[in-house]
Design a protein around this nucleic acid. Structure first.
Lengths: 125, 125
DNA sequence: GGTCGGCATCGATGAACGTCGATGCCACCC
DNA sequence: GGGTGGCATCGACGTTCATCGATGCCGACC
């Protein structure tokens, strides 16, 4: 269901790398991007390319403790609760957020290196 | 058409300074993103969030001289010429590519600091 | 002048997406 | 046990998007 979208396409012939590898330099502007890598990268970017989801990420990151529950996010966005839940699910499936259900509340937090990995791919180093 | 949304007004290959407080850190993860800023950022990201456009950027950047014409890009993508033209237009309107028509050919090239500005916004510094 | 070729635009079509109300599920409290 | 409240899922609706064939525009060449 949740296809694990790896951001770093330069995992080939690499000794380490277990998760979303933080490749130092996998610049999109260095060599032609393969078709599959392009699809994977586009899938992650598509999860980001929405005003509501960008603000959700920002709100979660800026919230105290680095995490927030749905009830904290519905009001500042001006969207209904099902819509916010939907966007959060998209972000979780893209590997950008984590979901931690504690009791009745579901707390969302940023995945530590996710945004930076994305930034690294875009950087024309 | 209000596609004049730019991320950073750095028209030239910046080297230092940059008077206005843009540049170094406008991290999405630092403070809540405003609604308008979110829309503008999402518009740029949406231009990137497509496999064909990602490969186009990559092909243009990796091409000799840093520029390429449509005829160079149609074949490796496996898309029709109108489709490629459409994607290139989207990238130009997003401020990621420049179009330079010389004679019959139209040459596309990367906008120097565009991708790096985007990366800077995403980076959780 | 006439022809050729590269590229942009137009119109149409099918798929994907954002949004919401209604509903279901589950933990907690009286 | 019964009620309450937070959250996810479902179904539906309107909009946006990617793609293509056909066509128009314009510079280059004979």
């Amino acid at each position: 269901m949740a296809t694990a979208v790896q951001i770093a396409p330069s995992a080939r012939s690499s000794s380490e790398s277990a998760g979303p590898g933080v490749a130092c330099c996998a610049p999109l502007a260095r060599k032609p991007l393969g078709a599959e890598d392009a699809v994977a990268l586009a899938r992650t970017l598509k999860a980001l390319a929405d005003p509501a989801r960008l603000r959700l990420l920002s709100l979660v990151a800026a919230h105290e403790g680095g995490e927030a529950c749905v009830c904290d996010l519905t009001e500042p966005l001006g969207l209904s609760q099902p819509t916010v839940s939907h966007h959060l699910k998209v972000l979780v499936e893209a590997g950008l957020l984590t979901r931690d259900k504690r009791g009745v509340w579901a707390y969302y937090a940023l995945v530590p290196g996710a945004l930076d990995s994305l930034a690294g791919v875009l950087t024309t180093c």
